[in-house]
């Protein structure tokens, strides 16, 4: 089909009953046309690459993809809202009763079964670090700042559609499908955590 598209004009050599020798020449010539058009196609596709990849996060945005946070001043029972990738992240220093309450819950009864231990780092189970983004439709739940409603389970409460999270930020009631997401993080030291 491609050959036909390229050579549409009357061509004495292809006009039927050409001798065998001439036929070979024609095939070689058609090959050149096809090669030129295919090469141009390859070039066109290659040119699309920068046009598409320019929309991916730029270098300055990627540079902010990890953040170090000083947590020394967060007392047990307090929490802070930090910013990670332009979204809120909740860092909460759990009190022993809050941890006990989180451990008490039967994991099998949860919508998204996870233990407190799975959601924190070993030895630092009092540090609950989660994204402050409701897994339902992306609102910021309440409960991180002092004086905010913590919901029926003492964790976080999303006012948009009424999702309640417990003290391990697990979904307990309301429309959210999963627990608040735990981002990747490491403790650089006892007082500095690196998220991302």
């Amino acid at each position: 089909m491609a050959q036909e598209a390229i050579i549409e004009t009357p061509n004495p050599e292809t006009g039927g009953g050409a001798p065998d020798g001439a036929d070979d020449g024609v095939r070689r010539r058609d090959f050149i046309n096809i090669a030129a058009v295919s090469f141009a196609g390859i070039g066109g596709v290659a040119a699309l690459y920068p046009l598409i990849s320019q929309m991916a996060p730029s270098a300055d945005v990627l540079a902010e993809s990890s953040v170090e946070i000083d947590i020394a001043s967060i007392q047990p029972g307090q929490s802070i809202k930090a910013v990670f990738r332009k979204q809120p992240v909740f860092i909460r220093n759990l009190t022993p009763p809050e941890m006990a309450e989180a451990r008490k819950v039967s994991v099998d009864s949860l919508r998204d079964p996870e233990t407190l231990g799975q959601r924190t780092k070993p030895g630092k189970e009092n540090w609950l670090i989660t994204m402050g983004v409701c897994t339902h439709l992306g609102c910021v739940p309440l409960g991180a700042a002092a004086g905010e409603v913590k919901g029926e389970f003492g964790g976080y409460f999303c006012p948009c559609h009424g999702s309640h999270y417990d003290t391990a930020a697990r979904i307990r009631k309301g429309p959210a499908p999963t627990n608040l997401e735990v981002p990747e993080y490491v403790f650089n030291s006892d007082t500095v955590v690196k998220i991302g």
Binding site: R29, I32, V37
Partner: peptide, 16 residues
């Protein structure tokens, strides 16, 4: 290379 091929194709199309 592309321009070389394009030249050959051009000569080819116009050969008669």
């Amino acid at each position: 290379v592309l321009t070389g091929l394009a030249y050959l194709a051009y000569q080819n199309v116009w050969r008669d």
